[in-house]
């Protein structure tokens, strides 16, 4: 009952008065110690109440929360830099690094072409099943697509990580300018490749976080 006097109870009454009433009823009768009481309220509480500790805090970005970044610089030639988002389940998203030449403000992409050669088109990837069989195999310098810019230049985008091509971002065909922001391809690297990544521990500037107890 103590909880009700805390300022957050305003919130309860605003949101869901009915639910809070239920909470008190559902408390087990036998244990009336304060700890179980808290637990009980914690258990069935409204989501806003339950996670009130999360409110008014800075929260990590969606990308930061689930992905770690590795930078692949100068894959083929200068200014050919990529930022690869690695999920803990080995799936990688290839995006352009800020230092990539396409990120220049004067480069305006007008067309994205997935037809790499006469035979290879990244858009038709005959992958089936959860085993990802038949997926196109990529090396780290395989070309994912060609981006044609307004000034007439044709820039190839490389895969940066080798592995199976799970998906190519097809929305880029409609919206070529999105190349600068969103992912270009989803790649599943082989286990040895994945283990060779030097994944920085949630730190973007390339330094490892080291625990210093002293």
């Amino acid at each position: 009952m103590k909880e009700k006097d805390v300022p957050s109870s305003k919130l309860i009454s605003k949101n869901k008065l009915g639910d809070t009433m239920d909470i008190t009823e559902e408390c087990p009768q036998q244990d009336s110690s304060d700890t179980t009481m808290d637990q009980c309220i914690d258990r069935d509480a409204n989501i806003a109440v339950e996670s009130k500790s999360l409110l008014d805090q800075s929260y990590p970005d969606f990308v930061e929360k689930y992905f770690s970044c590795i930078n692949c610089n100068e894959v083929r030639g200068p200014e050919d830099d990529y930022r690869v988002l690695v999920h803990s389940n080995r799936v990688c998203l290839v995006t352009l690094a800020d230092s990539h030449k396409l990120k220049h403000p004067d480069k305006v992409p007008i067309k994205v072409d997935f037809q790499i050669s006469d035979k290879i088109n990244r858009e038709d990837n005959p992958m089936t099943g959860k085993g990802k069989r038949g997926a196109q195999q990529l090396c780290n310098n395989s070309i994912l697509c060609y981006v044609t810019c307004q000034d007439g230049s044709r820039v190839p985008i490389h895969a940066a990580v080798g592995g199976k091509l799970l998906e190519i971002n097809q929305s880029l065909v409609q919206n070529p300018t999105a190349v600068k922001e969103t992912y270009i391809a989803i790649v599943l690297p082989s286990i040895p490749t994945f283990e060779s990544f030097e994944i920085p521990l949630k730190n973007e500037d390339g330094f490892f976080d080291v625990d210093c107890d002293s």
């Binding site: 689930y66 389940n89 799936v91 998203l93 099943g129 959860k130 799970l166 998906e167 599943l188």
Partner: peptide, 12 residues
């Protein structure tokens, strides 16, 4: 589409 976090165990 199969979310990225589930992509390793489900078909795309």
């Amino acid at each position: 589409k199969t979310p990225v976090r589930d992509l390793s165990r489900r078909a795309n």
